[in-house]
């Protein structure tokens, strides 16, 4: 079959030469390689102390943003859940009561909003689908845990707190914004 990539290397079963049969050059070659690696830069990162430099377009743990006044942007429209290819998102909508205007921006809000992090594939479709610019993927890492149900993140973990707003600007590069404008280009489908 014709090679498409042109990267494959043909290894013939040719008779080894006398020198090759000694294996010593090969061994020395191998030792040279290992020795070289000994002095090459280590790839280990002492994780808790050090963290790895994230890519600008890294898609990590989600956040549900609040607006400038501190009210939740999400209106429980469900588009994110529909867009989610992994069906990781569920929500229960509720009507805003009196006196809750400072809490929820719209009259409808998500009483329960859950993302199953074990299902989530971090594709970012939810972010693209969100009409209210509520959900974003951030450069945070989903921490490990002991129980499976701990990975079903509710609003307690997803909604940013007022004291500690999550910066999402890093991912929102001009390219991303440009991309987002053109919503028809649904790259996953």
């Amino acid at each position: 079959m014709q090679s498409l990539t042109n990267r494959k290397k043909v290894v013939g079963k040719k008779e080894m030469t006398w020198v090759e049969k000694l294996y010593i050059p090969a061994i020395l070659g191998g030792m040279r390689i290992t020795l070289k690696h000994m002095f090459s830069k280590k790839t280990t990162i002492s994780y808790p102390e050090q963290t790895r430099e994230f890519s600008q377009i890294y898609r990590g743990m989600h956040v549900l943003k609040r607006d400038e006044k501190g009210a939740e942007r999400c209106t429980a429209c469900g588009l994110c859940a529909v867009a989610c290819p992994a069906e990781a998102i569920t929500m229960v909508a509720a009507e805003r009561k009196k006196g809750e205007e400072n809490l929820y921006r719209e009259e409808k809000y998500a009483a329960v909003y859950e993302i199953n992090m074990l299902r989530c594939i971090f594709c970012g479709d939810c972010e693209d689908a969100c009409p209210k610019e509520s959900i974003f993927l951030t450069d945070r890492i989903v921490p490990s845990d002991f129980e499976r149900n701990e990975f079903v993140y509710g609003k307690d973990k997803l909604v940013e707190t007022l004291e500690n707003p999550i910066d999402i600007s890093k991912r929102q590069t001009p390219e991303v914004l440009e991309f987002k404008k053109n919503k028809k280009l649904t790259h996953n489908r």
Binding site: T34, H37, M38, S40, K42, T43, T44, S46
Partner: peptide
């Protein structure tokens, strides 16, 4: 340690 170094790691530290 050496195993780590040869595998571009740090080893026990």
């Amino acid at each position: 340690k050496i195993a780590a170094f040869m595998q571009d790691r740090l080893g026990p530290n």
